[in-house]
Amino acid sequence: MSRWRRVWIAPLLALTLCVAGCGVTVPSDPQGTLERVRGDELRAGASASRELVSIDGSDVSGPLAEVVEDFAASLDAHVTWTVGSEEDLVDGLEAGRLDLAIGGMTEATPWSERVAVTRAYDTIPGVESSVVMLLPLGENAWQAAIEGYLDKEAAG
């Protein structure tokens, strides 16, 4: 049997446990999005979508936008909106210019290869359909914070 597989697995496991034991939170953000946003600025992207997201000049409103504003407030952060097409927003998330994007995307969104997609929520006040938000790939503490917030809102 191949011995090299066993040789490599022990140090890998030890390394992981050590890092995990050094007081790092799980899950965490490789880019530190959640910690950067907390008490500061949430850079959100918006793409117009039926009654969910309305755009008037640089003013973003609608039920989905309100949820983002409330979420930011729960982190003592303010929202800076960027308006664009879905592809612009996805590019922004990939390049690290945005922390979050909304626009009536659903679970079937074709962008899931390039950005992280939250669970689908049909509990957002004023929103009839089931929608998701788009986030940067791999910012898992950030994703857990948003999903946790939306779950809490849905429950309460």
């Binding site: 899950p27 490789p30 992280a116 939250t118 986030l135 790939l137 791999g138 898992n140 779950d151």
Partner: peptide, 16 residues
Amino acid sequence: EHPSIGTVVVFGQTVW
């Protein structure tokens, strides 16, 4: 590519 692992809801709790 940074892998994304989201959360699930179990007994009312959001768990990674």
